[in-house]
Amino acid sequence: MMPLINRLTLLFLIATSQTLYAAEWGEGYDPVDPPVATSVADGKVEVLEFFWYGCPHCYHMEPDLESWLKAKPENVEFVRVPAPLNSRWTAHAQFFYTAEILGLTEKLHTPLFAAIHDKKRKIYDKNALIDFAVEQGVDKEKFTEAWNSFGVYVKVQNAKKLGQRYQLDGVPAIAVNGKYLTSGSRAGSYSKMFEIVSQLVAGENVKPAQ
């Protein structure tokens, strides 16, 4: 029988090797464990962007994101997810999904980012967000009705669940096909982060040998 000291040493070595393996697994991204089920069709690769309108890093990342989107592979299905990690973030998630349901994402998404970060406006609660939409030429009654709709509620709840499943601890973050999570802090820069996203997408495009 193995002496106690030898068994303890062996256990320590195993634990150490596992820790090192985890630390070295991937450079600039982490595996999602367990993987998160995606909602895309076969042959598609899902790429999610988790963001918050009040996050300056999310706003500053937008040009890099737009550049990447222009060159992304055709089979990538990109989805923005406004991470509702607290009550203030939840109001912004409701704004995003209200705009989405009404087909107003292009009209309202970038202007809200700019108003908060360039103009330093405090647009964080329901009333301020609805008033902002009205300033952009949106009908107040229609926007308010959509804001209070069950459809928007469901989308916000699903966004909350996604954040929990990805064990999200901050934004901006990019998830690839339910398997990997990267961010500017993990990668070192946004340009490097999108290089990593492209590499991960390419890996998902490789079909296993028959």
Rank of each mutant, 00 (worst) to 15 (best):
G43T: 01
T19D: 05
P35N: 07
E66M: 12
F78V: 02
D139P: 10
A128S: 14
K161G: 00
N6Q: 15
Q167Y: 08
L104R: 14
I196L: 12
D118P: 00
H109M: 05
I130S: 04
V81H: 01
L162G: 03
L10S: 10
Y53R: 11
A159R: 01
N6Y: 15
I130D: 08
E24I: 09
T9K: 06
K155R: 12
F194H: 08
R88Y: 08
A99I: 13
D118A: 02
I130V: 15
A41Q: 12
K140R: 15
R121Y: 05
M193G: 11
Y166Q: 06
P82H: 13
E46P: 04
E74F: 00
S87I: 08
E106D: 15
A187L: 10
F12K: 01
L20K: 09
A83T: 05
K179D: 00
V154W: 05
E49Q: 14
A175D: 06
I196W: 04
E77N: 02
I14S: 02
T16A: 15
W89Y: 12
S67R: 07
S185Y: 10
L129Q: 12
G188N: 06
L162N: 04
A146N: 01
V81A: 01
L129W: 09
A146I: 01
P208I: 13
W147E: 04
V152F: 07
N205G: 06
R7W: 07
K44W: 12
A159P: 01
P111F: 02
T9I: 04
K192W: 04
D33V: 15
W25A: 15
Y53T: 13
Q210S: 09
C55F: 03
L4P: 00
T90V: 05
N6I: 13
H117W: 10
I174C: 08
